[in-house]
Amino acid sequence: MGASILIAEDEPFIVESLNFLLTRAGHRVDAVDTGSRALQAMRGHRPDLLLLDIMLPETNGFDVLRRLRGEPELADMPVMILTAKGQEADRNRMIELGADDFVTKPFSNKDLLSRVEMLLEGGRAARGSTPSR
């Protein structure tokens, strides 16, 4: 079953490759290029997964994460972070803020896709058993 995935990423070629990969995997993809647009889009329609770049203009990835975890509707939505920062400290901070998984740039397509599937699986299971976290 195809899922709906929102990509928040400001690099057009990265968006294009993610779009290709996820569409080919049978998902419906939307893309936005700023943090505030990501929040806006999710409030209108909650996707099954957010692929979130950390270095976003306007509202950066950390802020998007913090804010969406504060909204009851979005608090338990699976979020995968796209990051160039592989450092321990940054990872801990992202986990603290509620990130579910990471993909470090430059990523491998296979790795990215398998992680996306795992997160979607987990999200479906969580929603099935406990409606709200």
Binding site: E11, F20, A84, N109
Partner: peptide, 22 residues
Amino acid sequence: LSHAVLTQISAIRSFAEIMEQY
């Protein structure tokens, strides 16, 4: 600059893999 470099490498790698895998 280092952010740009990483982005460029990411795009190259991802599309190269796409060409190979699809």
